[in-house]
């Protein structure tokens, strides 16, 4: 089986995973845009949202182990997404409140934010490990997973379709939010020039919180989608976190559409690369991509600057 035979299947898998990366990457990019800061603990927001959604969906599943169908499935996925998003949002809010705001109040040096985020991340990961156990937690099927249709001979499963559709809906929603609403205007204003934004009557403090929460909502919902495909564990955040960050840098950090493009591209590159080389080195590919972009085009494909892009 050559690469070309598998091409379309790999493309579909890559797009599915890539759309998840894009959703998580938005959290990095939004916070970066507003604060010029890499939110290191974002991967933990993703992890907590994932657990939240997973536990909620599992609690509502029928006890007999049967796979629900029809409206029940739709409801379960919706509940999982909702609870995941809420958990992610709450986690992001708490994170901002505890690990970032006290530092901002004193205008601490940048290094302090990074370190404090690492501390928060370490705390959250290991607390989750303690509370939820340190094994992988599987989410039982929420719907019958079959082939919906084929594209050029490649199967598109219900699951990939659901994930892709939800992720794209979230991406479009966020794009509209940033580009078209008053809130988005505020976010862009702060990203462009915080000091001037204050003079124009933008409540920077509020914008920062909202940005964190929006990123958290997306990451939480994305976490649930991730748990649906793979599984959840206390340390699950790290690898997708680094990849999503890579995606954000690939598209141009701070740039909302860039993060979306970067996520999808990275998913594709990884899918092709994993097939061409070795599946176990899949995780290394993202890292190599990151180093390569930093060397060749550090501002990313679409350029940095949240303010200009949207």
């Amino acid at each position: 089986m050559g690469f070309l035979d598998q091409f379309w299947q790999l493309t579909i898998d890559g797009l599915m995973v890539g759309s998840l990366y894009a959703v998580i990457a938005l959290g990095y990019t939004l916070v970066y845009g507003v604060l010029q800061l890499i939110n290191f603990a974002h991967s933990e927001v993703f992890m907590l949202g994932s657990f939240g959604g997973l536990f909620a969906a599992r609690a509502l599943l029928p006890d007999d182990g049967s796979v629900p169908g029809g409206l029940a499935s739709v409801g379960l996925v919706a509940v999982g997404l909702g609870v995941g998003a809420i958990c992610g949002g709450l986690a992001a809010f708490t994170l901002e409140r505890v690990a970032y705001r006290p530092l901002r109040r004193r205008s601490a040096p940048r290094l302090a934010y990074l370190i404090s985020a690492i501390g928060a991340s370490l705390f959250a990961v290991n607390l989750a490990g303690k509370e939820f156990g340190r094994q992988n937690v599987d989410l039982p099927d929420l719907f019958h997973n079959g082939t919906v249709f084929t594209v050029f001979g490649a199967d598109v499963s219900t699951q990939s379709l659901v994930i892709f559709a939800v992720a794209v809906a979230m991406l479009i929603g966020l794009d509209r939010l940033v580009a078209g609403t008053r809130l988005g205007q505020g976010i862009r204003a702060v990203a462009q020039d915080a000091d001037t934004a204050v003079l124009m009557g933008v409540n920077v403090e509020r914008i920062i919180i909202v940005t964190f929460v929006v990123g958290g909502l997306l990451a939480g919902a994305g976490g649930f989608l991730y748990a649906m495909t793979f599984n959840a564990s206390y340390s699950m955040g790290f690898v997708p976190g680094v990849k999503a960050f890579t995606a954000a840098v690939l598209g141009g950090i701070g740039n909302v559409r860039g993060a979306m493009l970067g996520g999808l591209l990275l998913g594709l590159v990884e899918s092709y690369g994993g097939y061409l080389f070795q599946a176990s080195y899949k995780d290394v590919i993202a890292f190599l991509v990151l180093v390569a972009i930093l060397m060749i085009r550090p501002s990313g494909l679409l350029g940095e600057r949240l303010g200009r892009a949207a």
Binding site: V34, L35, Q36, L37, R104, R105, R106, S107, A108, P109, R110, L111, A112, Y113, L114, V190, A194, D195, V204, E205, I208
Partner: peptide, 25 residues
Amino acid sequence: REIQLVEEGIGAADSLGVAPTGGQR
């Protein structure tokens, strides 16, 4: 001393670039 000065809005205390927004600068 550096950290103190940064918090008062003078200079920096690391080599990571400008301080994040939202501080009292």
